[in-house]
Write a protein that binds this DNA or RNA. Structure first.
Lengths: 156, 156
DNA sequence: GGAAATTATATTGTGCACAACTCAAATTAC
DNA sequence: GTAATTTGAGTTGTGCACAATATAATTTCC
């Protein structure tokens, strides 16, 4: 790919920032068949991943606050609030105010939301098996990305 | 980071897809001070990178078609057309129809657009020098991302 | 050479991201 | 105990992404 080969004063860094940007969108595109089948979007899927996870923990059904979701997904309320409302309208989750602190909105998964988990899991497993990318490559890339993310966060 | 450590049925793949998504947004955030200084957005910066590059080639000023830009940035006309119109309004580039083929819109950089290049380059160089991430790490991550992108494209 | 198919861009509509702001509830300081 | 501050969601406005569609110019095929 020519983007990967040429050089120039801005080339090195552009390529990392652009490679990240392009790879992120490519992965979202790769998820589209599954997401369309489930009737959700990619960020909605990420929200479900967090809720599914909390759901299987003990004492899980207290709900997850919008703030906790945002910290986990690195998204703010301006993104999450309308997204969660759409998911609530589709019956995938419920939102209610916390009685202990009325400022907090607690989100909890519904049965309809739970029902999507095995379908998503099956698809992901199948993709990993069928993929040209080995699990080892996936793990290595993942590790490097988190190292990079931590250094970005630490240095500004 | 707990996102990087826990496990579960959907964990491995989620972490790569989410790591890419989070890293891409983190990089965009890291560019914000420079972008705000130049008065542009991140995708607009990517467009300028392509135009700056073509500008320094010989016979560069024939302009770049919307299609060529889209292929390079992996974006379609639905994204590019309004973005390019905003950049045109800010005087960073010009759009005109190709005389050889009236379907084609040619984009060419203006002096105002050219003037941003040294400022962007200086900032990027400075960031690379000041960063906690070594150039070697940047290069390795970049290489792996392109390998991954090529495999994604090849296998679906 | 004219109808049909193709191509390049533009338009429309939905859903993120995110900055900036509002507002109410809770905390703190005094 | 109440005024000032902080905190957690929500709102508003701008700008991507991208699917689906539209439109007009070009090419292809008889």
């Amino acid at each position: 790919m020519s983007l990967c080969e040429d050089s120039g004063p801005l080339a090195l860094n552009r390529q990392l920032c652009f490679a990240l940007y392009a790879a992120s969108r490519a992965v979202t595109r790769a998820y589209q068949p599954m997401l369309q089948d489930l009737g959700i979007t990619y960020p909605q899927y990420l929200v479900l991943l967090v809720l599914w996870e909390r759901d299987t923990e003990e004492g899980g059904d207290a709900g997850t606050s919008v703030g906790a979701l945002g910290e986990r997904l690195m998204l703010d309320s301006g993104t999450l609030t309308p997204l969660l409302k759409r998911m609530e309208q589709r019956g995938l989750l419920e939102r209610r105010r916390a009685s202990r602190d009325e400022r907090v909105t607690l989100v909890s998964i519904t049965d309809a939301g739970r029902a999507l988990e095995p379908r998503a899991r099956a698809w992901v497993e199948q993709q990993l098996d069928a993929s040209a990318v080995s699990r080892q490559e996936v793990e290595q890339l993942h590790r490097q990305l988190w190292q990079f993310l931590e250094k970005l966060g630490g240095s500004g």
